[in-house]
């Protein structure tokens, strides 16, 4: 029994151990790596994936998935570039969030009302979203004005703007998930939708909201990303949905619902970015970046699946209480 508990403890802390190993390895290879400026860079680079992943976490917690987030990023960025080119960020960000949330509501309509699998709905809306974005941009590259690009270098209280946005989104999401009735109901619905309905939770409303949240986060992520990239080509935010899922899963969010949280997702996004950053700093062959990243995600999922298997074995119903040796 004790060895089982020990193994569980080891497996539970494996992602953190992984992070420490990553820090140690890159730290010993380069003295530029363990540097405050470098960590600021990591956080800035990780911010849009983290924000995307935070939205994804809401959906994953209900055992759903949202593959359309990359498309929503592109669509909201395209709308910003074409119709709100002169708007101030104060107006632009809420507008992009609204676009994303609206998009999420469409996803929710199909998932909740028509009961189509979330995977296929959001796969389809991924196409539709990218199509709309290409229509808006007339398949041309979109460039942005200085008031947006200057944000890439802007700081507030000495902290870069992107990190502020990242931190605010994280804080709000964390509070919502942990300290509001809605957040706790998200967890309940993900754990057992039937029991949740029986307990009187408005399950369709909870599900609809999480897709809207995911869309809104994609809108913000689009904004943060565009301040860094400066221009949106037709491949903008391509396959970011997978990066977001990967960050969540790496941070311990279960694809089957009810387990994990936004802190894990942020951890996952930062870990991925740390590795990428480290590889750049030690001048690794850029072609091996995806290999290293995917291996790390694989290891994290492997560890998590082994842990669930042990927990499942422990949770099996017992019929008789065995006499313990006296």
């Amino acid at each position: 029994m004790n060895t089982v508990r020990l193994r569980l403890a080891l497996l539970r802390n494996a992602p953190v151990a992984l992070f420490v190993v990553v820090l140690a390895v890159f730290g010993s290879l380069s003295d530029r790596f363990l540097d405050v400026q470098n960590f600021t860079n990591i956080l800035i680079q990780a911010s849009h994936i983290a924000i995307l992943g935070i939205g994804m976490t809401f959906v994953l917690l209900t055992a759903g998935i949202d593959l359309s987030v990359g498309a929503v990023m592109y669509l909201s960025v395209a709308l910003l570039g074409i119709y709100l080119a002169d708007a101030s960020p104060i107006l632009a960000v809420p507008a992009m969030m609204a676009v994303g949330a609206l998009f999420g509501l469409v996803n929710a309509f199909f998932v909740v009302r028509l009961r189509v699998a979330a995977f296929i709905v959001t796969l389809a809306t991924l196409f539709i979203g990218r199509g709309l974005a290409l229509w808006v941009t007339e398949t041309r590259m979109v460039f942005y004005k200085d008031q947006i690009l200057s944000l890439a270098r802007a700081e507030f209280l000495g902290v870069p703007w992107a990190i502020w946005v990242f931190a605010i989104v994280f804080a709000v999401a964390w509070i919502v998930l942990n300290h509001t009735p809605f957040g706790r109901q998200v967890y309940a619905v993900g754990e057992n939708p039937d029991a949740a309905a029986k307990a009187g939770i408005n399950v369709p409303l909870v599900l609809t909201t999480v897709y809207a949240v995911s869309g809104a986060c994609a809108g913000i992520a689009g904004f943060v990303s565009i301040t860094q990239v400066g221009a949106a080509a037709s491949s903008f935010a391509m396959e970011k949905e997978f990066a977001a899922v990967a960050a969540s899963v790496l941070g311990g969010v279960s694809l089957f619902g009810g387990r994990g949280g936004v802190a894990g997702t942020v951890f996952g996004a930062v870990l991925i970015q740390t590795v990428q950053n480290g590889l750049v700093i030690v001048n690794a062959d850029p072609y091996i970046y995806p290999l290293v990243t995917s291996s790390i995600i694989f290891v994290a999922v492997f560890v998590d699946s082994q842990r669930s298997r042990i927990l499942e074995r422990l949770g099996r119903r017992r019929i008789r209480i065995e006499e313990r040796p006296v």
Binding site: R184, Y187, E191, N192, A195, I201
Partner: peptide, 17 residues
């Protein structure tokens, strides 16, 4: 009819926090 991923208090008040 309990949610194992939530705490005792949350289970008690899940519909009436």
């Amino acid at each position: 009819n309990l949610f194992e991923n939530l705490s005792i208090e949350e289970n008690l008040f899940i519909t009436g926090f």
